[in-house]
Amino acid sequence: MALFAKAAAPDWPQYLAQRAATARDARLARFFAAGTIAPDTPINEAPLVALDMETTGLDPQRHAIVSIGLVPFTLNRIALAQRRYWVVRPLRPLSDESVAFHHITHADIAQAPIIDAILAELLEALAGRLVVVHFRHIERPFLNTTLQALLGEGIQFPVIDTMSIEARRYRQSIWARFRRWIRRPPVSIRLHNSRMRYGLPAYQGHHALTDALATAELLQAQIARHFPADVPIGSLWR
């Protein structure tokens, strides 16, 4: 099927199966063994989980995770009752600027567990669900780098990136090229601005749980507006 033959997306089922067989850490092995759903599963039948992390910066090599929020959902319902949220203590010290940004203080962090202590719960909440993020170059690379440092083995998994869905619509379309040509600034594809385009309410940003909820709602809106409800997930994941 042409839809999921995109060069960008690896063969996720095969990758996960292979890692399940080779992972040394039991928690990772369980996560990989839960696998993923088949690429031709329609999105409205797929179990999803919106994931957001607040980090001390944008570079996984230099910065660290300070909080993680997630909300399991489907295309029909976001289940807030199953939400999870952790503040974690980074392995590196926290800079003052990032504190101002997240409202997570040194004191909060000092009392928080390191990620190792919550990893089992986190991976269990993600296992068997397709992860949805806004801007895929944060959550997956940070988690991968953190686990490399902690366990000596990393993690990869398929994600749907609501920002790249927005980018395809609003940055790469003919209309977007026309805007560039008439020297109009490109439309913003940040989470808040993207939500505005779908009539979604303004939430207080920069809280990992709120942003995860905001991302889940955004995906529901994007699918409702731009895709058939049964679009195969293989055409969306990266």
């Binding site: 959902f73 029909n76 319902r77 976001i78 289940a79 807030l80 009752a81 939400r83 779908y198 009539g199 979604l200 309410p201 909820l213 889940a216 709602e217 529901q220 809106a221 409702a224 507006r225």
Partner: peptide
């Protein structure tokens, strides 16, 4: 903490006649 959330595009059905209902619906936007 217990709510469920869903988005409905303009023109789409939220509740149809005689369907089963087990939630109170609140319009956020």
């Amino acid at each position: 903490g217990q709510i469920e959330v869903a988005y409905f595009k303009a023109g789409s059905d939220i509740l149809v006649y005689d369907q089963e209902i087990h939630h109170l619906c609140y319009i956020r936007s």
